[in-house]
Design a protein around this nucleic acid. Sequence first.
DNA 1: CGCGCGGTTGATCAACCTCAACCCGCGTGG
DNA 2: CCACGCGGGTTGAGGTTGATCAACCGCGCG
Lengths: 248, 248
Amino acid sequence: MCIAGGRIDALTAQASRRPDDRRGAHLRKVLAHDHVFYESDDRDCIFVVESGWVKLYRTLIDGQRQVVGFANAGSILGLESEDIHLNGCEAITPVTVRCIPANSLADICLVDIKLAQQLLRQVGRQLGAAQAQLAAIGTQSAEQKMATFLLSVADLCDATQGGAFDLPMRRGDMAEFLGLRLETVSRKMTEFQRRGWIEMTSLYHCRIVRRALLQKMAQGGEPEEERSAPRAVRPTPQMDLGWKIAQC
Amino acid sequence: MCIAGGRIDALTAQASRRPDDRRGAHLRKVLAHDHVFYESDDRDCIFVVESGWVKLYRTLIDGQRQVVGFANAGSILGLESEDIHLNGCEAITPVTVRCIPANSLADICLVDIKLAQQLLRQVGRQLGAAQAQLAAIGTQSAEQKMATFLLSVADLCDATQGGAFDLPMRRGDMAEFLGLRLETVSRKMTEFQRRGWIEMTSLYHCRIVRRALLQKMAQGGEPEEERSAPRAVRPTPQMDLGWKIAQC
DNA sequence: CGCGCGGTTGATCAACCTCAACCCGCGTGG
DNA sequence: CCACGCGGGTTGAGGTTGATCAACCGCGCG
């Protein structure tokens, strides 16, 4: 789902291991709903998310917005652009990011060829993710999108604690990400709840109760009765969580 | 529109300049509607399109397809994957591709740091393109999508010859790309023709007559009367042709 | 000739959007 | 303290867009 992930170990781990590392200095804290950068800002930095959640979005001429991805710790931002940022990046929770001067990208590549390759893989994964999301947006129904989305966020956040997880973004953010209206998102969420598939412990906290049914729905099944879900041949086009998994 | 482009000069130009270059040998011709590679094929090669058009697509569990991009000469394919191809790649016209062994990617990076950076930029552009397409698919109406698509292909193909250009893909391909049904594509095409905005000189050849109106439509305007189109503040989210332009 | 493929066209229908009302929690200020 | 407004969310009624199903056309080819 273009829920970004994929660690650049050399950037995050290294820095934390050596507190005196000069890269360790460029940390920035951003409040929830503040921007890390805006569309068409000069791209003098790329960023690595250290903690929190951000959304990446684009604004079309008519003012419509499309959220092109969410990202949390470990994700790297700004690689899709050249001279100016093509996406806007807004914090949806309090966030800390590590800033990497864009002009030092070249140096980094020179210094550490392995790192360059890692970067290349990372963008590749993001690309794969974006394409997966494209497939989801283009072909799935509202219900499928919601199911896929919930599953992806759940898997991403952790999942192991009994299916409970944070859902820090607003309804409108989800809507803009999935290509729906926020009313539709709201409706589907309550519908899933009514069917007993999920529980909303609070507005921004969710628990998956019937994972199997959600999965079947995500794959295009009708809302049938409960059954042991047939393992998917391919593990569901998890929007794109694919590359997030790959990183672990 | 994820209509891929973006030349890797060092790969294409170099090879053509030195006929004895060993990379020059790995050329492959593919017939129309044959595959360059399939989904989940081992990714032992990446490819550079030398001539012709291909489409990149994904198949979802329920058999639905999403075309995630079209690509013509100069595009590079396979960077989004790691060990196996995530997309299928089918020729829509006769195509020649240059095959680059995947394991030589690392060597290439070592040998030519500039090239590595170029590759990084290229994937970055593709990523930006995919995100742009995401925005288009997610927010635009059928009519807007068609308009944007036609403009993008036109710009891509050349455009200078009086707005006439090839539209080599089938209706179904466009539909799968735009997240529509092929009937809808067909209808909108004839509708544009009826309005006098385009002319179909043949099934696979098109001419844009009222570019300004098409552009206004692509940006969300209603099908109004003719007017001199107000230059777009931003040059239309040309699906993603953005990065194709950037390459020139 | 008959068939199949790709495309067009028409009628119908449902999914989703739109608009609007309403709820709830919260912060502010009278 | 309460009234008020506001932001975010939910819910409902009705309308449109685009999907669906089906017929049909034209063409190339065995």
